[in-house]
Structure formats: structure tokens, C-alpha cells
Amino acid sequence: MAAHEKPDLPAHRNLFRMILAPTIWAIHFLLAYCTAAIWCAKDLGDPDTLTLVVTGYTVAAEVAIVFLGLKMWTQWDYLDDYDYVHSESTDEHRREFLGHAGFMLACLSFVAVIFNTMPVWFAGTCL
């Protein structure tokens, strides 16, 4: 249990923060695939440039996901109280649960965005 209480934090009610990282993953997926589809259909230029553009999306997405992941890590405050289970109906447990889940979703999104980008890195062709 926590050594000190943090009541009435808005974080314990904020579901949106938890799903922000997967939302960035989804937006990155759409942007990357739509850009590649339009680029190849309209023959907008060299596939290497397309690779650079999509890699740019990836860097931007990863920076945002890392930032959100750190925020979620702070919200979970694992190193503060080493709470791994958040089963109580208290604001603190809700906040930590949302932080814990948000942090793990951010980790998943980080890896997923790399996987989204792999086709242009390893098969970067419009053929």
C-alpha cells in the first residue's frame, strides 16, 4: 500500500490518456499505409523517399509514445510503492491501474509502430 495518499487526482478518472498511445499507433498505421498506397498509385517519386517519409512518421509517433509512456509510468508510480495489483476501489488504485495499463499499452504501441514500418524498410518497393 502507498505510504502517502494522492486523493482527487484527475488522472484516476482519465481513460483517454490510457488509450492515447494505441490511438497514435492506429493513426500511424493509417498514415503510413495511405501514404504508401497514394505514393505508389500516383507514382509520386522514388520509393526511397517514401521510406524516408514513413520513417519520419515513425520517429514522430515513437517520440509521442515514449513521452506518453513516461507519463503513464509516473502515474503508475511503481517505484514509489511497488504496487503491481490494483484491486481496491480507491482513487489511488484506479490511478495506478490506469497508469499501469497505459504504460503497457504504450510499450505495445512502441513495438507495433516499428512493425508497421517494417514493410517500407525491408520491402520498400511499389512493385
Partner: peptide, 9 residues
Amino acid sequence: LAYGLSMMP
């Protein structure tokens, strides 16, 4: 995935 994708071109 990298191994499989690199075969595609």
C-alpha cells in the same frame, strides 16, 4: 518478418 519482407522485392 524482416527476413520474409526482404525477399519480396
